[in-house]
């Protein structure tokens, strides 16, 4: 049965259905409804909802709950995510699974509350300190937001790597019909023998991101990067739309991805051979399929609500085999399909 839900609400409900029973937050627009939904619903499922005294406190509560083996989540928007970055680095270093939702708004600084995609670098290239990666998933519809939250918990548990949902204010605020995923049963969550559950009748477990011996720490990180390589091999996800005969392919994710889908339909009606390549995992980035596309598509036009961040990964994947122009908007302004179509027409003719 389809229900009409805001992106923020659907992500909250999906987290509950994924077995998340520990949620810690500090409020910020435009993800407020996620907090409200959790406050209302999580206690009914026997979960813990806690509005912390700060973002820093909230992410460290996530660290504690994750170390104890719980499925745990926090959510925020850009400035709040910046504050959480230290804790996210610690989660990554300690190999703790957790889900972090970033409903992006325009930055830098306090910026404003309009939708933007300026946190791509922060999400995919580190953000916090040290040699680590996050699994980064970018939904483009409310339906996909719900599904990717479920997936984020699964992937995070499987690899013991924190996962981030990179959404934006538009997706968080808008309502769309959604078919909510079935709730998982507690026994479907894989056991966590490494968790701190009380060391009765067993040797104590240690959860830490700290090792003073560089050689020992190097081995820990080498093992971690083996895991990252495994994720790169197994978990790349993307969507292609009308790319078969395309002369130009738009590369866009999240909200821009869905808007570019409309651009493709309009272009096709006008006889222009335009397609869409939409990364769903931003890390691992779908470099291989994009590389393949660049052998037969002369123009790959990246479109973002930023000054061009994912664009760098597109160019790295394409390595000069195709033209890689960029079109973006700044400050929370969302371009219309017509504006993007005009840009497309600079490169292709019917």
């Amino acid at each position: 049965m389809k229900v009409l839900m805001r992106g923020n609400e659907a992500m909250a409900e999906a987290a509950i259905r994924a077995g998340c029973r520990c949620y810690f937050c500090y409020p910020i627009t435009p993800q407020g409804e996620l907090v409200e939904y959790m406050a209302r619903h999580l206690p009914r499922h026997g979960g813990v909802f806690l509005q912390a005294e700060s973002e820093v406190a909230a992410i460290n509560m996530v660290y504690g709950a994750a170390a104890a083996g719980a499925r745990t989540m926090t959510s925020s928007s850009s400035p709040g995510i910046s504050l959480k970055m230290e804790g996210i680095s610690y989660l990554a270093g300690a190999r703790l699974p957790a889900v972090i939702v970033n409903v992006m708004r325009a930055g830098p600084g306090l910026g404003n509350i309009a939708p933007a995609q300026g946190d791509y670098f922060q999400a995919t290239k580190g953000g916090g300190h040290g040699d680590y990666r996050l699994i980064v998933l970018a939904p483009s519809t409310v339906q996909e937001a719900a599904e990717l939250v479920m997936l984020a918990f699964d992937l995070s548990d499987r690899y013991r790597v924190p996962a981030m949902i990179l959404a934006d204010g538009m997706l968080g605020q808008m309502m769309e019909p959604v078919e909510l995923p079935e709730p998982i049963l507690p026994q479907m969550i894989p056991p966590k023998p490494w968790a701190l559950t009380g060391a009765k009748d067993r040797a104590p477990n240690v959860v830490s991101s700290f090792d003073l011996d560089p050689y020992r720490f190097r081995e820990i990180l080498r093992a971690l990067w083996e895991i990252y390589r495994e994720i790169e091999r197994n978990e790349v996800r993307w969507e292609e739309y009308e790319t078969g005969d395309a002369e130009l392919v738009l590369v866009a994710y999240g909200t821009m991805g869905r808007i570019c889908r409309t651009v493709v339909r309009q272009a096709r009606r006008e006889g222009l051979r335009v397609g869409l390549f939409r990364p769903i995992t931003l890390w691992p980035f779908p470099s291989e399929p994009l590389r393949e596309l660049s052998h037969r598509v002369p123009v790959l036009l990246t479109v973002e609500l930023s000054a061009g961040q994912m664009w760098e990964d597109v160019r790295l994947a394409v390595e000069g085999r195709a033209k890689t122009p960029f079109y973006g908007e700044l400050g929370g302004v969302v371009p219309t399909p017509d504006e993007i179509l005009s840009e497309v027409k600079r490169y292709v003719r019917g």
Binding site: L4, P30, G169, Q173, M174, M175, E176, P177
Partner: peptide
């Protein structure tokens, strides 16, 4: 929201976006 909900029940694709802030 009532309009969006009715449209959904009628089988249409639909979005609802508020001014927020």
């Amino acid at each position: 929201k009532v309009l969006a909900r009715a449209a959904m029940e009628e089988g249409f694709e639909v979005t609802w976006l508020p001014s927020y802030g």
